[in-house]
């Protein structure tokens, strides 16, 4: 594709802290290359804002290669932008045309309070993981993981679920701010493997309990999460989560 530059207008959500009420500010961003990533455009804009003595726009990012899950922007209403199976850092400016106006907002959910501008606090996810998203391993010599036989399709499904990077786009995309896709990926990932069996029941009950405490909404199966997930986690995992929860909650020993 031919390299070219374009002039864009950004409408960006600015918010000083979680208590402040935010609002949109409009920035002209001229001379953006089609080869740049979406975050590089923000770098260009921020350098200019700093040079002008203005407050740069705070946004989260780390790996910039689609694996860490830090970048989080809702672009024209779409978490991680319009591309399928892509994080913001992997979205490139060739998607846009000269003269476009792009609206950029943070993930919006009570459970993800805005720290500043486009940065949100996703520690609710960490607390859900702490509640049960782990396996216990005995001390002593490490067991060779490869020595444990695992059914091929279970291994594949667990691997697909393990691709979740905990970015929170599922919550951002859901009209109910539900965290079920994230939770279902984490539960599926561990429950499908032999190592995940001992804590199987307790895990799902504790994690759901924590999710409910964090103030996420209830899933109504609109499947917007699956459509927006950069790792294309399937909603079949949510059905598995429901199954696991109901059998653990109603069928356990106590």
């Amino acid at each position: 594709m031919q390299h070219s530059t374009m002039n864009l207008t950004l409408k960006v959500w600015r918010q000083r802290n979680s208590k402040a009420s935010g609002g949109f500010e409009t920035y002209p961003v001229p001379g953006i290359s089609t080869e740049m990533s979406f975050l590089e455009m923000f770098d260009v804009l921020n350098e200019r804002l700093i040079a002008e003595g203005r407050d740069p726009i705070a946004f989260d990012h780390d790996c910039r290669e689609g694996i860490c899950g830090m970048c989080s922007m809702v672009i024209n209403g779409r978490p991680h932008g319009p591309w399928k199976g892509t994080t913001v850092c992997q979205l490139h400016m060739r998607e846009y045309k000269n003269g476009d106006t792009i609206t950029v907002e943070p993930w919006r959910a009570n459970a993800f309070p805005v720290v500043r501008d486009l940065m949100v606090d996703r520690s609710a996810f960490d607390r859900i993981i702490q509640a049960g998203g782990y396996i216990s391993v005995n001390t002593g010599n490490a067991v060779d993981g490869n020595a444990i036989p695992i059914e091929k399709d279970h291994a594949d499904s667990a691997f697909a679920a393990a691709a979740c990077i905990g970015c929170g786009a599922c919550v951002a995309a859901c009209k109910n701010s539900s965290a079920m896709l994230f939770l279902s990926a984490k539960v599926s990932h561990l429950t499908l493997l032999p190592q995940g069996q001992p804590e199987k029941r307790q895990r799902v009950v504790e994690m759901i309990d924590q999710m409910d405490k964090e103030g996420f909404g209830s899933c109504t199966n609109t499947y917007a999460c699956e459509a927006e997930c950069p790792k294309e986690i399937s909603v079949t995992n949510i059905a598995r989560l429901n199954r696991e929860f109901l059998s653990a909650a109603l069928g356990s020993g106590d």
Binding site: S178, G217, Y223, E228
Partner: peptide, 17 residues
């Protein structure tokens, strides 16, 4: 579910997802 998002989006994805 409505109460789980106090601050609403300015642009909505609508039928896209």
């Amino acid at each position: 579910n409505r109460a789980a998002r106090k601050s609403k989006y300015a642009v909505k994805a609508g039928g896209a997802t």
